[in-house]
Amino acid sequence: MTMKFTLAPEPDDLTRERGRLLFAAPVEFLKGVVAMAGLPPADRVEICFAGRSNVGKSSLINALTGRKNLARASNTPGRTQEINYFTTTEGPYLVDLPGYGFAEAPVAVVEKWQRLLKAYLSGRVTLRRAFVLIDARHGVKAVDDEILTLLDRSAVTFQVVLTKVDKISKAEREKVIEQVAQALTKHPAAHPEIVVTSSEKGEGVATLRTIIATME
């Protein structure tokens, strides 16, 4: 049976408020991790953000938390080589993973952080969900498929978040949603709801906050 993929619904007032309150409370940078031994204690649920370089991860994390510079974007795509941990007040860890697919860095460095990424995804027992960011202007590419397959093999539920939807027309939006939904049919770890966002315009931010805040 093929899973049907749909857009995540708008939250109701009660759950929207839960999401607002979670991110209205302090969110702090905890640490950058370059090896599995450096991970903080697995004492709470965590969710992570993955995506190819320049997909808008830092912008989305800043929009979610309502803070301009909590997550810092590099001017050079692929420069973020650490797993960055952020703490929420009485909520999950937010984990910003290194961008994949393009990096202006030595091959050995790229390979090292790719190994770290794989080790984290397959070995972190408290990881509840991975949010995989896909640029709405491009849809799912082969390099995205690689990370989605890794998440399948690691048995980590992932949910696709389309970014930068303000950069495309309504017709293009419908087309890319269809392309993404089709690509996800071959990935058993995919969550059935796709979140559509624009960090610049704020679209979808409340929905994503609510999903995170209500995750068991």
Rank of each mutant, 00 (worst) to 15 (best):
P188C: 01
A190V: 06
N69K: 15
V160Q: 06
S198K: 06
G56W: 01
A73W: 13
T197K: 13
G204K: 06
M1Q: 14
P98Y: 12
P106E: 10
Y100M: 05
T157Y: 06
S59M: 02
P192Y: 13
R18I: 06
R18T: 09
E90K: 15
D96L: 08
A142D: 15
P92S: 08
E193R: 10
V45K: 13
L151H: 00
I147T: 12
I177Q: 03
L151D: 01
K31P: 11
K112L: 03
G19K: 04
G66I: 03
V196W: 03
T87Y: 01
A130I: 03
R20H: 13
V132K: 01
T207D: 00
D96R: 14
T6R: 14
K141P: 04
V33F: 00
R72L: 10
L64I: 10
E82H: 13
A119F: 12
A206L: 15
M215P: 04
M215C: 10
L64E: 02
A71K: 00
A136T: 05
V27T: 10
Y85D: 07
P26I: 12
H138W: 12
A73V: 10
A103V: 06
A103C: 04
G66H: 01
T89G: 00
E46Q: 14
V34G: 01
P40A: 13
L7H: 05
A105L: 10
V27R: 05
L116G: 03
A213N: 09
K141A: 14
M1W: 03
K175A: 14
V55S: 03
E17C: 08
L184C: 05
I83Q: 05
E10K: 15
T88E: 14
A73M: 09
S58D: 09
L97C: 03
D135Y: 05
L22V: 09
E104W: 00
F5S: 05
D96H: 08
F102W: 12
L30Y: 07
D135F: 08
E28F: 13
E82L: 11
V110M: 10
A213Q: 07
A35G: 03
A136C: 06
